[in-house]
Design a protein around this nucleic acid. Structure first.
Lengths: 366, 366
DNA sequence: TTGAAAGCGTTACCAG
DNA sequence: CTGGTAACGCTTTCAA
């Protein structure tokens, strides 16, 4: 494959320098309209303006009209900051995900955001980069920002973070994982059980020699659980996963290629390779082809997540479907319910399902 | 391809109901520590506490230590809301993208967010769903939230939005596009020129019969520009794109398949198909294979964006590389600079480059 | 260098 | 049902 860089494009063109000094604090553009202005224009009190704007009951129809009129006329835009300070509710919800480059999280956040928008909340987003310390800092930061609720990924983190959350009384929800601790609400699925189901399927096909290209398990309970699930299945049949047939790699296509390459030089070659997610499986599939190994005839390969491309690979990928969009949406539902004082189920399991496609089959004859 | 749903998973398990009423306004958990508390503990004024916490110069060393100590001891966490109200700066930046499901935007936002984090800003995220009205509403919403700056995608929108932005004095930047209007800062590349370059490359190979599977151009200046670029190249050589060989489709793999299917039944089959992005090209590639058409021998196919999978398709995809991560980061740089009153180039071009891989070649002999 | 006090724009309590 | 008026927690003049 040749990659010809045909043009590099000027790196930076300073066609013009924008040098306008920032609007100085305390001297805003004239545009700013406040409740006081509206109140004056409508000849009512600021209290009434506030009540009208927040759809309080017990407001006279005449007064309501006057306020609405004045508000429209002046082009009033409420100041969410002041509102938050006064009401101690920001109508803001935070989300911390490892990275948006992993499409799973992007889709999950998208689902969350859509639901929040519908409910009148705005999303504050932070990335942890799979680093617990960074996640802790992000939690503090977002709490400081006054978020009314917080969406997290996974359940594995410093207990101090949970303490902080409880101490500040900030509703939160763990996602993409399923635990039974009612003090840690979650919406997700059982990664371990799903992985076990997948491995059992392969075992039922007759596979005995397994290889695993897992995600990096350090600080990642989802990746750990998936690996544990595979081990569960093997152990139940008296099998084990040799150390040399377990590879841990970041979720990148190239890493999947690397992983399979490593597995192919093992003493005993696996007949089935379970990958931590579809991206790794994508890479493994590519490498198998490059090595002249036919899938699934000589080697079965599985993924996890059912990404958009999974069904379109060659051969199509056997994987586990996870309703990421729905997880985000339900996390939003949960948080909004809790924030608004409504009851909500604490442990929310979403369905995951084994999707059998062409990348898996019976093992080759010995 | 068979897709066997092996297990559906219980849809909702209300293992426990969390019914704790929301912390009532005006009665927070005891945890809340304010500057006043710190001031009292350190036996100084709140003004001094504020100065220390904001690294003001002109603060005595002794006083600084006392404040820091007290602050640590009490576990003080600044209230960003109050801070924003008092200082008229929220240290918050908004971003509005069509959707995070499109990996391009996700990566761009990721790049932005990383840069913002480093600069001490937090990201407020909204989605427009490719709908200008929704985008306008999001702009208002985020301005109301007091964002110090705003990242937008593309440059095509109601002039009123620009007026609003100027009126409120909120710095903003358009991304993934390049214009020469110094009143509308941008960081991106020339989609039209890049697409033209791509089409020229195909023309140079000898192609004369083109097909295009564009993204939906309505309200999307990037998609429009890419299409225009292809037309530019054709026109320059006295060629035209017949209406029936132009398909517009959302950025989904399945839509790319649909697109190619439609092109294959044209009166004159194209020998080269230019796709609006890599996702559409992915689909086109799949469909070509399904139709028994070999790429690139019988048909050349190109993408746009150089997504992570592009180099790994079969054959690898000829496309245009765009530094999405960098665009996000530089958008962040620009906004932060403007917010902090520093000069910054208004028109920022990032390099895009033609990446020639195996999906393109000379047209088949007639 | 430090302190006192006046806001920032909104909400919510308390009277009427 | 409506109006006055304290907060909300912090920053930032203005004086000392």
């Amino acid at each position: 494959m040749r990659e010809t860089s045909a043009e590099e494009g000027r790196t930076t063109v300073a066609d013009a320098m924008d040098d306008a000094p920032r609007r100085r604090a305390r001297s805003r553009p004239p545009g700013r309209v406040t409740v006081a202005d509206v109140a004056r224009a409508a000849e009512v009190s600021t209290a009434s303006v506030s009540r009208v704007l927040n759809n309080h009951d017990r407001v006279g129809e005449a007064l309501r009209r006057r306020v609405m009129d004045a508000s429209e006329r002046l082009g009033y835009l409420p100041d969410a900051t002041a509102r938050a300070l006064a009401s101690d509710r920001s109508r803001t919800i935070g989300a911390i995900v490892p990275t948006l480059e992993n499409q799973s999280f992007a889709i999950c956040v998208d689902g969350l955001q859509r639901r929040l928008e519908a409910a009148g909340y705005t999303l504050l987003l932070a990335n942890s980069g799979y680093d617990p310390d960074k996640e802790s800092r992000a939690v503090k930061e977002l709490i400081g920002r006054g978020v009314d609720g917080l969406m997290l990924v996974g359940a594995l983190r410093d207990p101090k973070v949970y303490d902080l959350l409880r101490g500040k009384g900030v509703p939160f929800v763990n996602t993409l994982t399923l635990t039974d601790d009612v003090r840690r609400p979650c919406v997700g699925f059982d990664n371990r059980a799903a992985a076990r189901r997948l491995a059992d399927y392969l075992l039922d096909l007759g596979h005995r020699e397994f290889g695993v290209i897992a995600g990096v398990t350090r600080d990642n309970d989802r990746a750990m659980a998936r690996l544990a699930g595979v081990r569960d299945a093997l152990t139940a049949r008296g099998l084990a996963l040799p150390q040399e047939r377990l590879i841990e790699r970041p979720y990148k296509i190239g890493e999947g290629q690397y992983g399979l390459r490593a597995l192919l030089v093992c003493q005993r070659r696996p007949t089935a390779v379970v990958c931590g997610n579809d991206v790794l499986a994508f890479g493994a599939l590519i490498e198998a082809r490059a090595a002249g190994i036919s899938v699934p005839e000589q080697l079965s390969i599985t993924g996890f997540d059912d990404a958009d491309f999974a069904a379109h690979l060659n051969p199509p990928l056997t994987t586990v479907r996870v309703p990421l969009d729905d997880i985000g949406a339900r996390a939003g539902d949960f948080l909004v319910a809790r924030i608004e004082g409504r009851a909500a189920p604490v442990i929310n399991e979403v369905p995951s399902s084994l999707i059998v496609r062409g990348s898996t089959g019976v093992p080759p004859a010995p």
